[in-house]
Structure formats: structure tokens, C-alpha cells
Amino acid sequence: MSEPCAIEARALSKHFGSLVAVDKLDLDVPRGRIYGFLGPNGCGKSTTIRMLCGLLTPTSGRATVLGIEVPGDAAALKARIGYMTQKFSLFGDMTNYENLQFIAEIYSYPRADRERRINELLERYDLADRRKQLAGTMSGGQKQRLALACAVLHKPDLLLLDEPTSAVDPQSRRDFWAKLFELAEAGTTILVSTHYMDEAERCHRLAILDRGVKVADGTPQELKENTGMHVVEVLADDPFAAQKLVDTVPGVVSVTQLGIRLRVLIPDSIEDPVERVAARLKQGNLAASATLSAAGLEDVFVAVTLKPERVAA
């Protein structure tokens, strides 16, 4: 089998009535990689993932997942995909062990090896001393670990994780990602949607979605290098006043406040961005400094999800 990409989508669209949830999406997810899906609420991340695993029928366009056309004979595909829903979808009134056991039975995991596999997963996902706890009574992070354990139980080639770490503390998130890297290392392709920049940063590749449209696609490094924007960082004693002032500088498309710092985005077609900003600050008699800065993913995100009218102005 020579499948260049784990997921290949062409002009994939999904309409809900008049709402276009996903708009002509092209996607190439290489094998054995962690591919990130970044985008604001309602931009179509979950909808895309659901189309990819055959839960939703695309309005138009096509996609192949692990070399299999979707939607189509999904049954063959299901056995090779692990899907972790955005909302906890395991059985709250069953214990962790019972949930895993159920998943093992549903996926027809070899009977002889079942017990060992379940114990291994309980161990690896830190649930060993909670095997008899009802899943519904666990904390958010514990539930996510159980959900991941269930999603990987049948050793899928492709993992689709829909915001697996929402409501998880930073430490647990780091642990969670360590597990993802382990899996990727072992050859599993992972598509993961997220709102967190630090997570996006860890992906091998990522796509940014905005209102159903893919607005950026590449490695985090590529994305940061190709924002098409200058990033000017302003340090000000009164950042609030500075923001109001900088906002009026011609060419500025976005000002984001981070504590006493401002991140100012100016299209790179405009010359001398720092001077422009500094001049305006000086005019306003504000104690502030402006320096050119390298773009971070946050800046990329802001830049690509800007309202179109703002960019045109």
C-alpha cells in the first residue's frame, strides 16, 4: 500500500441550510505526523473532522482517508480510525475498566490479549487506581485521558482528536502531548483540533480555519515566516491609551494587548512600520517604545483571521 497522505481532501464543503460551515477545504495530512487544526469557535473544525470519519456527509467535494473514499464503505475505515469527540462521549455510568472493555469488544480486539491491553492502557494513562471509578465521576482531565485510552485501544492508524485538551491544566496538557508524540513516533497519524497556541506550536504541521475557509497551512515555522505582516511590539506605561492611539496609525490592521505590551500588525507592503508607530506615540506624548519583533503563532493567527474589510482599509 502506498498512500502518500493519511488524509487527502479536495474542495470539501458542508452546508447546514444556508450556513456554510466548511467551504471548499483542501487538506493533505502526511502519515505519522501530528497535524493541527486551529481556528476560532464555530470555524468548522468539528464539522471537518466529522466529515473525515464519515459521521457527516459532505455537501460537495471529496476526501480519502487512509486511502478509502469517504463517505462510502465506512465500516472498513472505522476499524482503523480512533476518534475522540469534543464532548465526553463515553459512558458515565460505567467504570473506566468497563468502558475500555466495551470498546475492546466493539472493536473485536483479540480476546486473548484484551485483559493485558486494557491493563496496559489503564497504566499508561494513569487510571490504574481508578479502574473501578465510574467514568462520569472523574475530573475533566481524567475523562480526557480515558477518552484517549479508548480512542487508541484498537491501535488505529489515524487518530482524530477534537479539542482533546480543552478544560485540562497546563501540566496535564504537557503530559497529554507527550503521549501524542509517543503515538506519532510509533507511526500513528494524528489530526488534532485546538484553541491553544502552545499546542499548535508543537504540531508538525497545521491548518488555520476561519469561518469554514482554510486561511493558512504549513509548518509552524513556515507560517511564522510568511505572515505578510510586520510585527511591532510596543511597551507602554499606559497600554490602554497607547492602543487607542496606535489603532489610528494608517496601515495598522490589528493591535493586541498583552499586559503592558502591544502587538501591532502592519502589512509588510508598508515601509518603516516601527517609525510610523513611534511617531504617532510621540505625537500623543506617551512614554512608550516600539521595536520590530518576530511573529509568533498568535500573530499568525490574528493576521490570518482578520476581518477582510480591516485588511482592505
Binding site: C53, G54, L55, A75, K78, A79, I81, Y83, T85, K87, F88, S89, L90, F91, G92, I103, I106, Y107, S108
Partner: peptide, 14 residues
């Protein structure tokens, strides 16, 4: 309602 169905229909169960 609880979202279990989304998980179930994504398994090989018919």
C-alpha cells in the same frame, strides 16, 4: 443527548 451515539456510530458496530 449524552453524545454516546457519536462515539458508537464511529465504531465498527452497525
Amino acid at each position: 443527548e449524552r453524545g454516546n451515539l457519536e462515539l458508537l456510530i464511529n465504531t465498527p458496530v452497525s
